[in-house]
Design a protein around this nucleic acid. Sequence first.
RNA 1: GGCGCCGUGGCCAAGUGGUAAGGCGGCAGACUGCAAAUCUGCUAUUCGUCGGUUCGAUUCCGACCGGCGCCU
Length: 307
Amino acid sequence: MAGSSDQSIRVICGPTAAGKTHAATWFAGMADVSVVSADSRQLYRGFDVGTAKPTAAESLAAPHFGIDVLAPTERGSSAWWADRADAWIDDIVAQGRTPVVVGGTGLYLRALFGESFEEPPLDGARREAIRALTAPWATTELRRWVDALDPARAHLGRTQLLRAVEVALLTGRRLSSLHRELARPPRRRARYLVVDPGPSLAHAIQQRATTMMSGGWPEEVRRLMDEVPGDAPAWNATGYRMVRAMVRGEVTPRHAVEQVVIETRQYAKRQRTWFRHQLGGEDVTRCSGNEPDWAERASAWWREGDA
RNA sequence: GGCGCCGUGGCCAAGUGGUAAGGCGGCAGACUGCAAAUCUGCUAUUCGUCGGUUCGAUUCCGACCGGCGCCU
């Protein structure tokens, strides 16, 4: 483990359905790879088909961390994940294996490889009280509050507004100030390989959706509906609500697939925007995964990591 | 063949004699402890076609084309 913490970690990221897991499996042929999944949905036990968890063969090719580590009712967070990922990487290195972080949850990657901050202790009970208070507020109203409490964050989405209010009320400080004052440097350095097949991704998404539908997704959802409360965080994954509506007979299978494909495409688009602008570091290699010299370029990216 | 209704951006859809709501989709962007989440911006010089009335028509009139319905 000694001397390993300043080593850059290889990270394979990109939009959903771009073949990141395939790429990781391919690299397993070049070293004893262990994969750390940076995917906020594959965390959840039981949500398998719709989150495209690694297949048995892929799990066999390389041990995976970060999969099935939460109950569907538990709530994760980027910082929570980064703590664990940091430890998993240590373990993997200690075993003499090569860690590869694979995933599409940009915020999680940032928590591990980008700047973060030391969150001051927040009182649990008061936190719950504030959540209960703000939950019914309309987003526009929430935004008015943040405009006063922490204007630098007022342009963001509801999730971020709730957080800004919570931190302001609990600490008496602006979250945007705390980010600055309590900033800590990145814990790890990353060497990114951004995999994106370009225009053909739309087709891959379509293909994957129909494969999932005929591959046991509705059955999985039917099972989960009996075991998991309808408001559990795990349901918050692309397509699951739509498939649930289909299983209940509220929408036709045809409509369900159509919508799942659209939702997935929209998600992939947001991921592209993230990986285009938010990766921060300069160590970014982009490849399409279906260009003729893909293997060559990918190998080069891999080998440069040993230098 | 006759009568009636309709024809607005990729799709759905409001609308008025004074110069085109909204939704979906698409595109672009934001994002530091809910992120497969949550938000923001942009997206019709033009209302089936051609003529007419009018200072001015997407809105009124006529013809034609296309769709739907009813009747013979």
